[in-house]
């Protein structure tokens, strides 16, 4: 194909868009809505995921030491070195006693000499750390009496995160299919409107590739337009949502906009452009059989 021919393709694609401008706008609108749906599910899923991570961060393992151990510092070093431990915090028995006294409202429960509480280390974990393994290893450190964490809560959280991930993925996949379906059907309409033109092109001897190109470009432009609109609506809407939420409920920590921006851009534009192209190729196929 001659280089000049590609200029022709761009010109024809542009003409097609302008000539059927109402149809093109409708197509962009529908693609926007479809991608918006996808974007909403995406934001919902990543934020759910984010909440799960936050909850995970709050999990701590408490390591109680034997009474009267000497090498507290050494134990701390060993615990901090365990795989999956992000940081450790030492809580001496005096502090534990003070906390307990405060909790019970009785200030004279313990004395310096008579304090049955053990020294304690609080371990916070890195993301995805294996709690069971850490607690097993920690309990083996000499001088450690007991390791305690909220087993039931951890189990629940693990399952919840997994279910959230699976459900999110399934729904995202479903919306991807829905978007593809909608885009194909929409572009089918714009191709249908020009079936006569395609027929004549074929009858006067245009090759399939030649007929296809302008439609391919047109489909990609429609997808691109839909993606751009959906992106603007989503990111602006998300910003407003974050602002509203932070005004009323400080404690719902949504992912910041900067962190969802680039995946949204990549997903929406890839889907818009690819699906537009696929939609065009798919729609034009049957009209090429002339």
């Amino acid at each position: 194909m001659k280089p000049r021919t590609f200029l022709y393709f761009f010109r024809e694609a542009f003409r097609g868009l302008v000539r059927n401008s109402l149809m093109s706008l409708a197509a962009i609108g529908i693609i926007t809505i479809a991608l918006l749906l996808f974007g909403l599910f995406y934001l919902f899923t990543v934020n759910l995921q984010h909440l799960g991570d936050l909850a995970w961060d709050k999990i701590e393992i408490r390591v109680f030491l034997e009474q009267n151990v000497e090498q507290v510092e050494e134990i701390g070093t060993k615990l901090a070195a365990l795989p999956g431990v992000k940081s450790i915090k030492f809580i001496p028995k005096q502090e534990g006693a003070a906390a307990l006294e405060k909790l019970l409202g009785n200030k004279n429960l313990f004395t310096e000499e008579d304090n049955p509480l053990p020294h304690c280390f609080n371990l916070s974990l890195t993301e995805g750390a294996n709690i069971d393994e850490i607690s097993r290893l920690a309990s083996k450190v000499p001088g450690v009496e007991e390791v305690v964490f909220g087993q039931a809560f951890v189990k629940f959280l693990k399952i919840a995160i997994r279910i959230g991930l699976i459900v999110g993925m399934v729904f995202l996949l479903l919306t991807v299919c829905a978007v593809l379906y909608i885009v194909i059907n929409t572009i089918q309409l714009t191709v249908y409107a020009r079936r006569k033109e395609i027929e004549i092109m074929k009858l006067v001897g245009a090759t399939d590739a030649f007929v296809r190109w302008p439609f391919l470009l047109e489909g990609m432009v429609l997808g691109l337009g839909g993606a751009a609109l959906a992106l603007i609506l989503l990111t602006e809407g998300y910003t407003i949502l974050i602002r509203k939420l932070s005004a009323y409920h400080n404690f719902i920590p949504l992912l910041p906009r900067a962190q969802v921006n680039s995946p949204l851009i990549i997903f929406l534009f890839t889907m818009g452009i690819c699906f537009g192209a696929i939609g065009s190729l798919f729609s034009i196929k049957r009209y090429l059989k002339v």
Binding site: T5, I200, F210
Partner: peptide
């Protein structure tokens, strides 16, 4: 006939040449 209604007489004819480069 198979003429394209939105193209002029000139364009209808030139179209047949354009699409074969």
């Amino acid at each position: 006939y198979k003429l394209l209604p939105h193209k002029t007489v000139y364009e209808n004819i030139s179209f047949a040449l354009e699409v074969i480069e």
